Simulated scan of single mutants.
Amino acid sequence: MNSVKLLAIAVILGGLALFIKGGYMQAKAHFAQFLVANAWQKTLEQGGEHKPWSWADTWPVARLFLHSGQKSSASLQHNDKGAKSLYVLAGAVGRTLAFGPGMLLSGAKPGEAGNTVIAGHRDTHFASLQYLKPGQVLSMQIPSGETIEYQVFDAGVYHESDAWLMEDTDRSILTLITCYPFDALFANTPHRYVVRASLRQTIEKS
Protein backbone atom coordinates (compact mmCIF):
# COMPACT_ATOMS: atom_id res chain seq x y z
CA MET A 1 0.00 0.00 0.00
CA ASN A 2 1.56 3.29 -1.08
CA SER A 3 1.88 6.41 1.03
CA VAL A 4 -0.99 8.19 -0.74
CA LYS A 5 -3.45 5.43 0.21
CA LEU A 6 -2.15 5.39 3.78
CA LEU A 7 -2.59 9.14 4.01
CA ALA A 8 -6.13 8.91 2.62
CA ILE A 9 -7.07 6.21 5.14
CA ALA A 10 -5.57 8.26 7.98
CA VAL A 11 -7.58 11.32 6.93
CA ILE A 12 -10.81 9.30 6.71
CA LEU A 13 -10.25 7.67 10.08
CA GLY A 14 -9.40 11.03 11.65
CA GLY A 15 -12.54 12.61 10.23
CA LEU A 16 -14.65 9.69 11.44
CA ALA A 17 -13.18 9.99 14.93
CA LEU A 18 -14.00 13.72 15.05
CA PHE A 19 -17.54 13.01 13.79
CA ILE A 20 -18.11 10.37 16.47
CA LYS A 21 -16.69 12.64 19.17
CA GLY A 22 -18.91 15.52 18.03
CA GLY A 23 -21.97 13.29 18.04
CA TYR A 24 -21.12 12.05 21.54
CA MET A 25 -20.77 15.60 22.85
CA GLN A 26 -24.09 16.60 21.30
CA ALA A 27 -25.83 13.57 22.79
CA LYS A 28 -24.27 14.29 26.18
CA ALA A 29 -25.45 17.92 26.06
CA HIS A 30 -29.01 16.93 25.14
CA PHE A 31 -29.15 14.32 27.89
CA ALA A 32 -27.86 16.87 30.42
CA GLN A 33 -30.67 19.25 29.42
CA PHE A 34 -33.19 16.44 29.91
CA LEU A 35 -31.86 15.85 33.43
CA VAL A 36 -31.92 19.58 34.23
CA ALA A 37 -35.52 19.85 33.00
CA ASN A 38 -36.49 16.85 35.12
CA ALA A 39 -34.84 18.43 38.19
CA TRP A 40 -36.74 21.68 37.57
CA GLN A 41 -40.03 19.82 37.36
CA LYS A 42 -39.31 18.22 40.73
CA THR A 43 -38.62 21.68 42.16
CA LEU A 44 -42.00 22.94 40.93
CA GLU A 45 -43.81 19.92 42.32
CA GLN A 46 -41.94 19.32 45.58
CA GLY A 47 -40.06 22.54 46.34
CA GLY A 48 -36.46 22.58 47.51
CA GLU A 49 -33.28 22.11 45.51
CA HIS A 50 -32.95 19.14 43.18
CA LYS A 51 -29.63 18.34 41.51
CA PRO A 52 -29.86 17.11 37.91
CA TRP A 53 -27.36 14.33 38.68
CA SER A 54 -26.02 13.08 41.98
CA TRP A 55 -22.51 14.59 41.72
CA ALA A 56 -23.67 17.99 40.43
CA ASP A 57 -22.74 21.05 42.48
CA THR A 58 -25.57 23.10 40.95
CA TRP A 59 -29.33 22.88 40.49
CA PRO A 60 -31.98 24.73 38.46
CA VAL A 61 -33.26 27.89 40.16
CA ALA A 62 -35.46 29.38 37.43
CA ARG A 63 -36.65 29.03 33.86
CA LEU A 64 -36.00 32.06 31.67
CA PHE A 65 -38.09 32.90 28.60
CA LEU A 66 -36.67 35.28 26.00
CA HIS A 67 -39.66 36.49 24.01
CA SER A 68 -39.76 37.67 20.44
CA GLY A 69 -41.63 40.94 21.07
CA GLN A 70 -43.31 43.20 23.59
CA LYS A 71 -46.35 41.01 24.25
CA SER A 72 -47.54 40.54 27.80
CA SER A 73 -50.19 38.25 29.24
CA ALA A 74 -50.64 35.82 32.11
CA SER A 75 -49.96 32.86 29.83
CA LEU A 76 -47.20 34.47 27.77
CA GLN A 77 -44.50 31.93 28.45
CA HIS A 78 -46.71 29.09 27.25
CA ASN A 79 -48.31 30.77 24.23
CA ASP A 80 -45.40 32.68 22.71
CA LYS A 81 -44.04 30.14 20.25
CA GLY A 82 -41.14 32.48 19.45
CA ALA A 83 -39.87 32.36 23.01
CA LYS A 84 -36.54 30.74 23.79
CA SER A 85 -36.65 28.75 27.02
CA LEU A 86 -33.54 28.37 29.20
CA TYR A 87 -33.10 26.65 32.54
CA VAL A 88 -31.06 28.86 34.86
CA LEU A 89 -28.63 27.09 37.20
CA ALA A 90 -27.28 28.13 40.59
CA GLY A 91 -23.82 29.71 40.41
CA ALA A 92 -22.22 31.68 37.58
CA VAL A 93 -19.03 29.59 37.33
CA GLY A 94 -17.41 27.81 34.40
CA ARG A 95 -18.48 24.26 35.21
CA THR A 96 -22.09 25.45 35.58
CA LEU A 97 -22.15 27.61 32.44
CA ALA A 98 -21.30 24.55 30.35
CA PHE A 99 -24.86 23.31 30.97
CA GLY A 100 -26.81 26.56 31.00
CA PRO A 101 -26.82 30.18 32.15
CA GLY A 102 -25.87 30.62 35.81
CA MET A 103 -27.34 32.93 38.44
CA LEU A 104 -24.94 34.81 40.70
CA LEU A 105 -25.69 33.46 44.18
CA SER A 106 -24.72 36.73 45.88
CA GLY A 107 -27.36 38.65 43.93
CA ALA A 108 -31.06 39.10 44.58
CA LYS A 109 -33.55 36.34 43.88
CA PRO A 110 -35.91 36.99 40.94
CA GLY A 111 -38.71 39.38 41.82
CA GLU A 112 -37.05 40.64 45.00
CA ALA A 113 -35.64 44.13 45.44
CA GLY A 114 -32.08 44.11 44.20
CA ASN A 115 -30.06 43.00 41.19
CA THR A 116 -30.58 39.47 39.85
CA VAL A 117 -27.48 38.70 37.75
CA ILE A 118 -27.35 35.84 35.25
CA ALA A 119 -24.36 35.03 33.01
CA GLY A 120 -24.15 32.73 30.00
CA HIS A 121 -21.89 31.84 27.07
CA ARG A 122 -22.19 34.03 23.96
CA ASP A 123 -21.88 31.11 21.53
CA THR A 124 -24.50 28.82 23.11
CA HIS A 125 -27.24 29.64 25.62
CA PHE A 126 -26.95 33.44 25.52
CA ALA A 127 -26.31 33.87 21.79
CA SER A 128 -29.83 35.30 21.43
CA LEU A 129 -29.11 38.22 23.77
CA GLN A 130 -27.83 40.16 20.77
CA TYR A 131 -31.41 40.39 19.44
CA LEU A 132 -32.98 41.81 22.61
CA LYS A 133 -33.88 45.51 22.50
CA PRO A 134 -35.30 48.02 24.98
CA GLY A 135 -39.06 47.57 25.34
CA GLN A 136 -39.02 43.81 24.85
CA VAL A 137 -40.47 41.54 27.52
CA LEU A 138 -38.66 38.75 29.36
CA SER A 139 -40.26 36.39 31.84
CA MET A 140 -38.92 33.99 34.41
CA GLN A 141 -40.64 31.10 36.13
CA ILE A 142 -39.49 30.70 39.73
CA PRO A 143 -39.66 27.67 42.09
CA SER A 144 -43.06 28.72 43.48
CA GLY A 145 -44.53 28.33 39.97
CA GLU A 146 -45.12 32.07 39.64
CA THR A 147 -43.84 34.00 36.65
CA ILE A 148 -41.82 37.18 37.08
CA GLU A 149 -42.13 39.48 34.10
CA TYR A 150 -39.47 42.05 33.16
CA GLN A 151 -39.13 44.72 30.48
CA VAL A 152 -35.78 45.53 28.90
CA PHE A 153 -34.63 49.12 29.41
CA ASP A 154 -30.99 48.82 28.32
CA ALA A 155 -29.01 46.56 26.00
CA GLY A 156 -25.46 47.29 24.94
CA VAL A 157 -21.72 46.73 25.13
CA TYR A 158 -19.78 47.39 28.33
CA HIS A 159 -16.21 46.80 29.46
CA GLU A 160 -15.45 43.97 31.87
CA SER A 161 -14.29 46.58 34.40
CA ASP A 162 -17.82 48.00 34.69
CA ALA A 163 -18.44 46.13 37.93
CA TRP A 164 -21.28 48.50 38.88
CA LEU A 165 -23.52 46.48 36.56
CA MET A 166 -23.57 43.71 39.18
CA GLU A 167 -24.02 45.97 42.18
CA ASP A 168 -27.14 45.85 44.33
CA THR A 169 -30.04 48.20 43.56
CA ASP A 170 -33.06 49.46 45.46
CA ARG A 171 -35.47 48.10 42.85
CA SER A 172 -35.89 44.74 41.19
CA ILE A 173 -33.51 44.52 38.22
CA LEU A 174 -32.59 41.58 35.99
CA THR A 175 -29.09 41.74 34.48
CA LEU A 176 -28.08 39.29 31.74
CA ILE A 177 -24.38 39.19 30.82
CA THR A 178 -22.40 37.46 28.09
CA CYS A 179 -19.06 37.96 26.35
CA TYR A 180 -18.76 40.24 23.32
CA PRO A 181 -18.41 40.26 20.36
CA PHE A 182 -20.69 37.32 19.63
CA ASP A 183 -18.62 36.18 16.65
CA ALA A 184 -15.24 36.48 18.37
CA LEU A 185 -12.73 33.77 17.44
CA PHE A 186 -11.05 33.85 20.84
CA ALA A 187 -12.32 33.64 24.40
CA ASN A 188 -11.55 36.07 27.25
CA THR A 189 -12.45 39.23 25.36
CA PRO A 190 -12.57 42.40 27.52
CA HIS A 191 -16.08 43.42 26.54
CA ARG A 192 -19.50 42.20 27.64
CA TYR A 193 -22.94 42.44 26.10
CA VAL A 194 -25.37 43.32 28.87
CA VAL A 195 -29.16 43.34 28.88
CA ARG A 196 -30.89 45.04 31.83
CA ALA A 197 -34.59 44.76 32.56
CA SER A 198 -36.85 46.06 35.32
CA LEU A 199 -39.65 44.21 37.10
CA ARG A 200 -42.98 44.64 35.35
CA GLN A 201 -45.32 42.30 37.19
CA THR A 202 -45.63 39.00 39.01
CA ILE A 203 -48.10 36.52 37.56
CA GLU A 204 -49.65 34.02 39.95
CA LYS A 205 -49.25 30.31 39.34
CA SER A 206 -52.06 29.07 37.09
Results as ranks from 00 to 15, higher is better:
S72P: 00
R122K: 13
L97C: 01
E112S: 09
A39M: 05
L86R: 10
K28R: 13
A92W: 02
K109M: 12
T58M: 05
G22R: 09
L89A: 02
D80G: 08
A37L: 00
A83E: 06
G114F: 05
L66C: 05
G100F: 06
Q130D: 01
T124E: 11
S72K: 08
A10H: 03
G82V: 05
G107W: 02
G100C: 02
G22M: 07
W53F: 13
A83H: 00
S85W: 01
P60Q: 07
V88F: 05
V93Q: 08
L97K: 02
H67R: 01
H67Y: 05
K109R: 14
A98D: 15
V88I: 15
Y131W: 11
V93M: 06
A62H: 05
S85G: 07
A37P: 03
I20Y: 09
S128P: 00
A39T: 04
F19W: 14
S68N: 11
I118W: 06
P101W: 07
T116P: 07
W53A: 04
G107A: 03
A92D: 03
S72Q: 10
V61I: 09
P101S: 03
A90R: 14
P60K: 01
Q41T: 07
E49I: 08
K71A: 15
E112A: 08
K51E: 11
A119T: 10
A27Q: 13
Q130H: 05
N79A: 11
A108I: 04
Y131S: 14
K71C: 09
L44W: 06
K109Q: 13
I118P: 01
H50D: 03
H67A: 00
A113E: 14
N115A: 00
K81C: 01
R122C: 04
I20H: 02
Q41I: 04
F19C: 11
L13A: 15
F31W: 12
G14H: 12
V61A: 01
F99L: 13
H121I: 06
L16W: 12
A74G: 14
K21M: 11
Q46S: 12
G100M: 07
H78N: 13
K28W: 08
L105Q: 13
H125R: 03
F99Q: 09
L86T: 03
W53N: 08
L105M: 14
P52Y: 05
Q33L: 02
S85F: 00
S85L: 06
L16P: 00
Q70C: 09
G23R: 10
E112Y: 06
V88C: 01
E49Q: 15
G102Y: 03
G111P: 03
Q70S: 14
R63H: 10
M103E: 08
A83D: 00
L35W: 13
Q41C: 00
Q70H: 12
G22Q: 09
L97N: 00
D123Y: 00
D57N: 12
